[in-house]
Amino acid sequence: MGFSAIIGGNLMAGGELGSLMNLHAFVIVVGGTLGATLLQFPPKVFLRGLRIVVWIVKPEKLMLNKQIDKIVRWSTMARKEGLLGLETVIDGEKDSFAKKGLQLLVDGNEPEVIRDCMEVELSTKEHLDLQAAKVFDAMGGYSPTIGIIGAVIGLIHVMQNLAKPELLGSGIATAFVATIYGVGLANLLFIPIANKLKAHIFQATQAREMIVEGISSIAEGENPRNIELKLSGFLLEK
């Protein structure tokens, strides 16, 4: 919608689509932005950022209601059959984080130990994901500045060819279009992607915190009904 509004507005004002197409400006802005970002982040973090960008259109399915129901069933089973009765549940659990918590529970660890072990993994996972999201934050910061560099390069090209009017057009086009590319990519693509990824990471972290709380409550021997009431507080929609 954002890109369409800019292109449509340009056409409505009598401009041509070709006036916004400039390969030189694109190479300067995109190449410069990627170069600066690659220098800031280790390759592992940069590649992870590219992998998780799919979350903006296909985020992880959290399904908190179903997760609460599962935890309540685990609690009921633990009260009836003991913690060892949950061994049959572990193999069928697809969520590796919940599976780790169940294994700690079945092994008879204290609630504090279970909570500490799971929170270490929780905080590490959140940190890695936030670092990956910051890749796009960085792109959003560098892109407008690289666009200004492209504009200066275009103006230099203009000043060097004042005696050759046929070369002035390309230099002026590079100068203005590079600025549009830099500011446009930052505000319509990079920064929105970073913020959406951060929002999803926050929600995923809350979902894992709910699992930590639920499994710790089972270890403490809380009543299944009380566990259900406690975990319902994590639901975003009341």
Rank of each mutant, 00 (worst) to 15 (best):
I218M: 06
A207E: 07
I156N: 00
K196H: 07
L20K: 14
M210G: 11
G108V: 10
Q203I: 05
A151V: 02
V54M: 12
L229K: 15
W55V: 07
L104H: 12
K230H: 08
T124S: 11
I7W: 02
T124E: 13
G184L: 14
S96V: 15
N223E: 02
P165A: 01
K164I: 00
D95W: 01
V152D: 01
T124V: 14
D116T: 13
D95H: 10
C117D: 13
T124Y: 13
E228A: 12
L128T: 04
I211W: 09
G92A: 15
F176I: 07
K134V: 07
G14Q: 04
R51E: 15
Q67A: 13
I146K: 08
L104Y: 12
G82E: 09
Q160W: 00
I7C: 02
G171K: 00
G8A: 03
G35L: 11
L235Y: 02
I201E: 03
G214H: 11
A36N: 01
R73D: 11
D137I: 07
L189C: 08
T179R: 02
R79D: 07
V45W: 03
G221E: 08
K198Y: 11
G169L: 00
V113F: 13
G9T: 04
L189V: 15
L83E: 10
G182Y: 03
Y181R: 04
I227F: 05
R79E: 09
N161P: 01
G108D: 02
N223A: 10
L122K: 04
F234Q: 02
E166S: 01
A186C: 04
V183C: 01
I193M: 04
G92S: 09
K61L: 13
L104E: 06
I172D: 00
L86R: 06
S143L: 09
F97Q: 03
T76I: 05
I68M: 04
A5L: 15
A132C: 04
E110I: 08
R225Q: 06
I7A: 10
V30R: 11
G150W: 02
Q67Y: 08
V53I: 11
L17C: 10
T145N: 09
R115S: 11
H200G: 08
K66G: 15
V135Q: 04
N109Q: 13
F3Q: 03
Q67C: 07
G49E: 08
I215S: 09
L50T: 02
M210E: 05
K61C: 10
I148G: 02
I172G: 04
G169V: 00
A175K: 00
